[in-house]
Computed example of a mutant assay.
Amino acid sequence: MSDSAWSDRIVGERMQTDQEFAEKVAASNFSRQQWGLVMTAVEFEIENPDDLDSARLVADTSKVESIVPELEKVDQARGMAAGGGRQSDDSGGLFDGVKDALGLGGGDDDIDREQLAAAEEMAQMYAGDLQEKLESKGKWEDVCVLARE
């Protein structure tokens, strides 16, 4: 069965975990909007679904690095909307954004390594919280069975 079969089965638990995780986001260096962007780049996998004792829900954060430069822009845009200010000229515009997205930009000079590490760590915490939720609701074994197929 595809990854989407087991991930579709846990939508309700994800929504509950999102709500409960909001406190951790508020205590972090990420705004809600930034965290939302991080989560668009995270995919979840189940390691060792054949062995319930070692099965673990993990966050695949391999794509998070690609959105790190956008995190600051999210808050800048929010500040502009709230304050009506002008965007600074340090933005490269649409063309530079497309080049960066295609990997043709200036490399990883714009990558804030600390922010990347924090995003990856929080994504793993989220995965742990989600797994705990699934276990507490008695759904973890069923999800692992679906992930095996």
Rank of each mutant, 00 (worst) to 15 (best):
V143I: 03
T17K: 02
T40S: 14
L52V: 15
E121P: 09
C144T: 06
S2M: 06
L71I: 02
D89N: 05
G138K: 00
P49N: 08
V38C: 13
G84R: 10
N48P: 06
A41N: 06
F44R: 12
G103A: 09
D112I: 11
E135D: 08
V64S: 02
T61M: 02
L37H: 01
S91N: 12
A59T: 03
G83N: 13
R14Y: 10
A5Y: 14
Q124L: 13
K73V: 01
K73D: 01
A81G: 05
G103I: 09
Y126Q: 09
F95L: 00
W140N: 04
L130Y: 10
M39G: 15
E43A: 14
E23V: 10
M15I: 04
D8Y: 12
R86A: 15
A82T: 02
Q124R: 12
R56C: 14
M1C: 15
F30N: 00
L102V: 00
K73W: 03
D60R: 07
S54Y: 04
E20W: 13
R86W: 15
D112Y: 12
A147T: 02
A147F: 03
R148V: 12
G128A: 11
D142H: 08
E132Q: 13
V25G: 07
G97S: 02
K63I: 07
A123L: 07
V98I: 00
V143S: 02
D53H: 04
G128M: 12
G97K: 00
L130H: 09
G92D: 08
A81V: 05
M80V: 06
P49Q: 11
A117F: 09
E132F: 12
F44M: 12
W140V: 10
Q76S: 10
E149R: 11
A27R: 05
E121G: 07
E13M: 08
G85P: 11
D108A: 06
A127V: 15
D96N: 01
D53Q: 03
V145M: 09
G83M: 13
L116T: 07
E121T: 12
S62D: 01
D96L: 01
V25A: 06
E43S: 13
D108T: 05
G85Q: 12
W140L: 06
V143R: 02
K24G: 10
D50H: 15
G93M: 02
M122E: 04
V98R: 00
E23M: 07
E120P: 08
